[in-house]
Amino acid sequence: MIYMQLLGEFLKIGIFAIGGPGTMPFLFDLAARYDWFSLAELADMITLAQTAPGPFGVNVVALAGFHSAGLPGAAIATAAFVLPPTLISLLICRFLALWRSNRYVNMAFSGLRPATAGLLAAIWLNLLALAICGTDSLFKATDINIKALLFLLVMLPLVFRVRINPVVFIAAGALVGILAGL
């Protein structure tokens, strides 16, 4: 039953994903374990989620649910993703002082944050391969899209140095993609 599977998987993501981008390693994991969507399709969803308004994590989860099982899938995935953190927030509000000063909570997060960064770095290698080589892994890459690689080399310093709304970069990406015929 796909709806139950979706519910279980996205509840897990809701409990364990730190921040919106933290959902991506889990979705890569889902792409590997189920035939709901491929890595290439996931890259398209990530692209679209970055392009649309709203929280990135919510957007990409809704798209993943939609791709897996249509509108009910989107509703289940989004609700399951949002519910655990919402309940945790309600609890935190009640026990505010306890949570903030709790030694073990702080220790756990001192491990969870770098781990999330490491997971993101790992899936970045997949995103890079999909953007530059058109395959989902650098090991499988047979050729490189030189235009895309050059564009990336131009974008990296801009993204790191220029502090503007990312939607400007997204719009530039769409424009360059069409003009250069990527």
Partner: peptide, 23 residues
Amino acid sequence: AQAMAGIKVVVAALVLHNVWLFL
């Protein structure tokens, strides 16, 4: 498809920046 390919490159740059912000 071309616009999506262009945005995909930008997303790769944004995610790397995200990793750096954590790191």
